[in-house]
Amino acid sequence: MEILGLVNYALFMAIFIAIYALLALGLNIQWGFAGLFNAGIAGFFAVGAYTSAILTSPAAADRIGGFELPFVAGWIGAMCAAALVAWPIGKICLRFRSDYLAIASIGIAEIIRLVIKSEPVLTNGARGISSIPRPAGDLGYMESQAAYLVIVLAVLVAVYFLVERQFNAPWGRMMRAIRDNEPAARAMGKNVEYRRLEAFIFGSALMGLGGALFAHFNRSITPEAIDPMVATFLVWIMLILGGSGNNRGAILGAAVVWIIWSVSEIATDRLPHEYAVQAKYIRLFLIGLMLQLVLRFRPEGLLPEPLRGDRRAAPTERDRS
């Protein structure tokens, strides 16, 4: 019994790590490749989650939906919807320094939160959308979790290889050139705004996919499912700690930070009740402090960005290991 519980918990953790790793990979395209500051990760996550929920859930009174499409269609829809939300923001803000994008992305996350709360026709308001089908959800409890973990890992591996390929492709080199020396890249004839928009949209689409995977795992999505600031911030610390610009670093960071975050939750839950509430906020304080310490003492992260992007041409010692 005890062992079964542990296995279930491990499966649960692994699914969450994989979903957060997808978000961190999305952020890596935006921040690691292109130097774009997106502070509205939770907004794109929510767009993806709700889009997939609407597309795949059975019909319900008082709201649109009931399309009952297969989950793959829901996930593709989630990516498209997140990309569609990202497009106008990027179009307007990417002409300026990334500070403006930071502010506008906080704004779009706020607007998305307002829409979710006040458009019950779309999102069923505070009650949220339930009975979202989980792929392989008909199996027993543990088998179903294990099967879903396999699906999520398959998605993660596919995304990792695609993003990694992009990173080593001419596109990735161009993005890093734009990030590190914009005037030089411009002088080489690169369309800087357009390329940044590409990176912003690709990254946001991955965040939408992460949201869809979360909604299908949970089988429901409500406005309170995630705390926007905490979720956004966790993804940031995952990427920075893991190593921005390094896809394996993003995945490693997701695992490390999520394990620290969950274990500390277990620890604080054991405290007597009068301290438990305060301990929750102290955890938030410490995760904020962690970012400051990483920025100060190890800004390159656990796995630094491979500086020779084209590995076939120049394999280094670290790359081979």
Binding site: G35, F37, D99, A102, I282, L284, F285, L289
Partner: peptide, 26 residues
């Protein structure tokens, strides 16, 4: 962080926002 790209300080300030808020909540 003054010698680093300015956007790094923007990121640090997002962390500071979370830290100040949790101090207030505690």
């Amino acid at each position: 962080l003054r010698e680093r790209p300015k956007i790094v300080t923007v990121m640090a300030s997002l962390g500071i926002a979370l830290m100040i808020r949790s101090v207030v909540q505690v």
